[in-house]
Design a protein around this nucleic acid. Structure first.
Lengths: 151, 151
DNA sequence: ACTAAATAGTGCGATATCGTACAAATGAGG
DNA sequence: CCTCATTTGTACGATATCGCACTATTTAGT
């Protein structure tokens, strides 16, 4: 039975730290990306590369937990830049398929490469084991919030 | 000597999880706040309550790691809503002092109270010790990124 | 088959965020 | 004192984000 007096401040601090880390890291990411591109663009390209392209916008929006209207905008930017192509979905005429282009794959690789020095800098101060230790908790909390959102 | 092959993907996953948790928790927060208020508003009120008001906008922007132009906008919203008052800074005529009003303190308390059930729900699934274990790492990474940003 | 409910993507409007450029004020160096 | 660089807050413009409403399509219930 958790005691609210200690628990709630601890959780507030947790979410507060997460918020600021996100802010700082996103900003850092963006200074490394070509002008006009944001973390949101990279995130989509990274997702498609890691888990495979050909997904629908709705799949991606759900996975990344962004509203579908926001994703429409992001995809439109990626498409204009030639980093993805949007094709009709043969399984569902309402929907589309998001395909990576070669330029899109290259963009992601370049982005990762240009972030490499920053990442190594972090890695030098924080042993990967220490980061790896925290990952399960983060993933669990993410999954919890994720499931909770639907219900 | 960290090995890039494992380290960099681990860090990517870390920042990715942080990003999604931030997105999910911010959204949840905002559904609990009165209409028209965002996490950014709460964050400022919370900061002033915890560390004391009378600070300058620039102090707050630095502490919260948001661009000063963004904070100007947030403060303007808080001021219009009567949750803070902006007064001239006797020490520096360029600057201002941000003071909490009673309504501002009350707003924060109400916000925390309305988030209570959500927090307890999280707390039931994640023992506070487990959260507390992760806090030092988050704080260290935050501090590292924070310092790194200046240099 | 037919209607009703649910779902996918988008257009639109409101507003948040942030970079640039500025004016006012301060501080540093001569 | 008197520059000149720095700092504070803001106005402005550009764009991101997101909620609402809408159309087209699919799915479910009868």
């Amino acid at each position: 039975m958790p005691k609210p007096e200690q628990t709630i401040p601890t959780l507030f601090r947790f979410f507060n730290e997460v918020g600021i880390i996100n802010q700082l890291s996103s900003r850092l990411f963006e200074t490394r990306l070509p002008d006009g591109f944001l973390v949101s663009h990279f995130t989509v390209l990274n997702h498609l590369t890691r888990l495979g392209d050909g997904r629908t916008p709705m799949d991606i929006a759900t996975a990344l937990q962004v509203p579908k209207t926001s994703l429409t905008h992001t995809l439109s930017g990626l498409s204009k830049a030639g980093l993805i192509s949007l094709e009709p979905n043969p399984k569902d005429a309402r929907s589309k398929c998001v395909l990576l282009t070669d330029a899109g794959r290259q963009f992601r690789e370049d982005a990762i490469a240009s972030l490499g020095p920053d990442m190594m800098d972090v890695a030098e101060h924080f042993p990967p084991e220490r980061i790896a230790e925290a990952l399960p908790l983060l993933e669990d909390i993410r999954a919890f919030l994720d499931k909770r959102r639907d219900g």
